Each structure stands twice: as structure tokens, then as C-alpha cells.
Amino acid sequence: MLARDPLPPAVFEVNRLTLEYPTAAGTVRAVDDVSFRAGEGERLALLGPSGCGKSSILKAVAGFLKPASGAIKVRGRDVKGPGPDRIVVFQEFDQLLPWKTVRQNVEFPLRMAAKLSKAEIRERTETTLKKVGLERVIDSYPHTLSGGMKQRAAIARALVTDADVLLMDEPFAALDALTRSQLQRELLELAEELGFTLLFVTHSIEEAILIGTKLHLLSPHPGRTITSLDSHEFGREDIGTARLENLTREVHDLLFSPKIRKGAPENV
């Protein structure tokens, strides 16, 4: 389960990232000296206990939080703020505008950018929606779509802008088990078909293994790197198998070992 070698060129990389928040009692360090990277088509799952800074890291990669120290790069360029090269797909995909059709939702970021003609916007939108299998509901409204269709529409809206990285922060956390399982399957099918690069935040060990091609484990607050693991050989066909249970147990032991909880991350 060790990291693959040689490393592919990085689509995004986080180098010695430290994040801090000002509070009434003083500055609080949320993330301490964390580094990771992902290549083309890789899906990196950030995994750790509540309060370890997973969501803060994702917000920093999105450009919404300024690092106290360290650097974040996408395609070798420093992240200075939000940009179209990084698109956040929010929890339950509620960024879809309910008064707009699927077509209009996906067109929206292209129209806001005002860099393409109406014909070019229409062509790119229709091509992207066909890629994600929504050409039959292109003129439907979000409330008429299933959860899987909403997810596909949200991802299409990211892909239509040619974003380099999709960012997902516990998108299935509030869902029941059956819906969650269905949407995990939908996401994996799209990822394998379209090959997008993903940063995925979750507190579920099994979900991280199934969604991610690599895992980055964080210690309890403040979040520090424990280790990175390769999970690209695991998929939904491994659910219920001994090999998945063994890796889940291994990851659990790394996250919750007494040594880690005392603030001394180990390298594996």
C-alpha cells in the first residue's frame, strides 16, 4: 500500500501548508506543515478525525483561505485566490440554481466569464452534458432530477470550464446509506470515464478507500501528515471483502494509534 513510484507530474500540490485562524483567545493553528500532491486523473482523499483541518485545506486549495506559510500550486502556478482552474462541488450539489434548467446551470459559468460566443457556449454545454449522460434531461429543472443526475449536473458545470481540479467536501455526508452508495458509484463511473483530478474530503475510511486512488491521512487537531497510502487497486467490487476490511483496519489503526493521538505522526 505504499505510494507509487515514479510520481506523475502534479496537477495540484500542497507544500508544507500551515493554516491559522484568529480567535478572541489568540491565533489557533488548524493545519501544521502538510504536504501532498496529485497527478492527472488521480483522486486524492483527505482523511482524518473531525477538527483535523480537512475542510480548511480544501478551502485553501480553492483559494478561500490564505496560508500562514507554505504554498499551493495548480499546474505549477501559485494559488493566490479562487479561480476557474479549481471548482468546488458542494455538499448535496445545492449549487444548482433551482430556477434554471440543467442547460442553463451548466452554461452559467461560461456566460459569467463572457469569453465565448453564444454558439460556442451552447456547443460546449451540450458536449459536456452528453459526456455525463444528461443529454435527455438538458431542459429539465433540478427538482425533477434524481440525486445522481444532480451530481452529474454539478460535475458537468465544473468540467465545462475546463477546471483542472474538482474539490468535494464530504458531499455525501448528510445522505442515507443507500443514496450515499448510489452516488459514490455514480461519481466513480464518471471519474473513470472522464479522468478528472479530484480532491475529496471525508471522515469515512471506507469511502476514502473506495473513492480515492490515494489517501492522505491527517492527525487530530492541529492536522499534521501521518502518511500517504495508495488505494488505486480498490473499487466497489471490494465491498465486503477481507482485503478491504484489512486496509480499513490498517488505516483506522494509523489514525487512532496512541502515538498519533499524542501528536507525534509517524511515517510509514
Score class of each variant (00 low, 15 high):
residue 7 L to P: 09
residue 15 N to E: 15
residue 17 L to W: 07
residue 17 L to M: 09
residue 21 Y to R: 14
residue 25 A to T: 06
residue 25 A to N: 07
residue 29 R to M: 04
residue 31 V to N: 03
residue 34 V to R: 05
residue 44 L to W: 01
residue 46 L to M: 02
residue 48 G to T: 02
residue 48 G to N: 02
residue 53 G to R: 08
residue 62 A to M: 08
residue 63 G to H: 07
residue 68 A to T: 10
residue 70 G to V: 08
residue 77 R to A: 14
residue 80 K to H: 13
residue 81 G to A: 11
residue 85 D to C: 09
residue 85 D to F: 11
residue 86 R to M: 03
residue 86 R to L: 01
residue 88 V to K: 07
residue 89 V to N: 09
residue 89 V to Q: 09
residue 90 F to Q: 13
residue 90 F to R: 09
residue 90 F to I: 11
residue 91 Q to A: 12
residue 91 Q to W: 07
residue 93 F to N: 04
residue 97 L to K: 06
residue 97 L to A: 13
residue 98 P to C: 09
residue 98 P to Q: 06
residue 101 T to P: 07
residue 101 T to M: 03
residue 104 Q to T: 08
residue 105 N to G: 02
residue 110 L to Y: 08
residue 116 L to P: 04
residue 117 S to A: 05
residue 118 K to D: 10
residue 122 R to Y: 12
residue 125 T to D: 03
residue 126 E to S: 01
residue 133 G to Q: 00
residue 135 E to K: 02
residue 136 R to N: 11
residue 144 T to H: 09
residue 146 S to Y: 02
residue 148 G to L: 00
residue 153 A to Y: 06
residue 159 L to M: 12
residue 160 V to D: 09
residue 161 T to L: 14
residue 165 V to H: 02
residue 170 E to M: 05
residue 177 A to W: 00
residue 180 R to N: 07
residue 182 Q to M: 09
residue 183 L to S: 12
residue 188 L to A: 01
residue 189 E to K: 14
residue 193 E to W: 07
residue 193 E to A: 15
residue 194 L to R: 02
residue 194 L to T: 01
residue 196 F to S: 04
residue 197 T to P: 06
residue 198 L to N: 02
residue 201 V to M: 03
residue 203 H to W: 04
residue 215 L to M: 02
residue 215 L to P: 05
residue 218 L to R: 06
residue 220 P to V: 08
residue 220 P to N: 05
residue 224 R to P: 15
residue 227 T to S: 08
residue 228 S to W: 10
residue 235 G to I: 03
residue 236 R to N: 13
residue 237 E to S: 12
residue 237 E to A: 12
residue 241 T to E: 01
residue 241 T to W: 04
residue 242 A to H: 11
residue 243 R to Y: 00
residue 247 L to T: 01
residue 249 R to P: 00
residue 252 H to A: 15
residue 253 D to N: 14
residue 253 D to P: 00
residue 257 S to E: 09
residue 257 S to N: 10
residue 260 I to E: 13
residue 263 G to A: 10
residue 265 P to T: 08
residue 266 E to Q: 15
residue 268 V to W: 14
